[in-house]
């Protein structure tokens, strides 16, 4: 069967196990009736069920919730939050500002990209270590190849104030015994004792905890999408409730120009018919 024939099979319909809405009747969510079978799930449980197809224990839900709460800072200086706040000061809508801020949270030095990287490393490292690989060598090879390890080190400051409250919650919920959890600390020990001097940040800790809950790197990355979310609406609201344009206004002097010197556009510019006019 060639390409177009393959596509023809899918025209106008989708076959799926994820769910559907039956207008005026009911809704099915991953094989369960949303309004009866799943009616007692709270939002976070449903969200994680939607991602993984599995249900989590109250202790696990409590830890995931803690991970999100402890990373939600209503500080508009943070780059992702600033997008929400700028939307407010520019009198854009809350949905546009906050969803753009969420999208921006998929960043390399924090957020989504770092999260998936950390989860992939810890899951792979556990498999390798269980198969007899030396963890120090694994860490060394990872740094050499990728110039860093997701979840270790942090932009702006090295210490992560979220580690202590998350650890307290994890102990309270009895989830401090997982293999990935222990491995994450072992990696930190190696990084601190070696020449790298990198501390674990919340990304590695939360990736380890979620890996111990059975989440794949992609499931973890999607589950963490809301990790900063609760901090964003206050940034938008504060800006939108203040006079327009007053959030971080930039005077001309704040542009530090480092480019080409002033010059004249060529005397006979490209204004031939094919040149764009």
């Amino acid at each position: 069967m060639n390409g177009p024939q393959l596509l023809e099979q899918h025209v106008g319909k989708l076959t799926t196990r994820m769910g559907a809405f039956f207008p005026g009747e009911r809704a099915v969510f991953r094989g369960y009736d949303l309004h009866t079978s799943l009616k007692d799930m709270n939002w976070l449980e449903l969200f994680l069920f939607g991602i993984t197809g599995r249900r989590f224990t109250p202790q696990q839900i409590s830890v995931v919730q803690g991970l999100w709460c402890y990373s939600s800072y209503p500080d508009p200086r943070l780059w992702n939050n600033r997008v929400a706040a700028l939307a407010g000061t520019a009198r854009s809508t809350g949905s546009l500002g906050i969803t753009a801020a969420l999208a921006v949270s998929e960043a390399q030095i924090y957020g989504g990209i770092a999260e998936q990287r950390a989860a992939e490393f810890l899951i792979r490292a556990r498999i390798c270590v269980n198969a007899g690989t030396d963890l120090t060598e694994l860490v060394r090879a990872e740094i050499k190849q990728k110039r860093g390890i997701g979840g270790y080190g942090r932009p702006i400051v090295s210490a992560d104030e979220r580690i202590a409250p998350v650890m307290a919650l994890v102990r309270e919920q009895g989830l401090d015994g997982g293999e990935h959890f222990k491995l994450a600390f072992e990696v930190e020990r190696i990084l601190l004792e070696g020449r790298w001097r990198l501390r674990m940040n919340i990304v590695a800790l939360s990736a380890a905890l979620c890996a111990d809950m059975g989440m794949s790197p992609r499931e973890y990355y999607i589950a963490c999408m809301m990790a900063f979310f609760a901090g964003m609406p206050p940034c938008y609201l504060d800006a939108v409730e203040k006079p327009e344009g007053q959030l971080f206004p930039l005077p001309c002097r704040m542009l530090s120009y480092e480019g080409a010197p002033r010059r004249r556009w060529r005397a006979a510019p490209v204004h031939s018919p094919a040149g764009g006019r």
């Binding site: 106008g12 989708l14 076959t15 799926t16 196990r17 769910g19 559907a20 991953r30 094989g31 009736d33």
Partner: peptide
């Protein structure tokens, strides 16, 4: 469009 559920309860 149309959806066919493989696991409709």
């Amino acid at each position: 469009f149309r959806i066919e559920l493989e696991n409709d309860p």
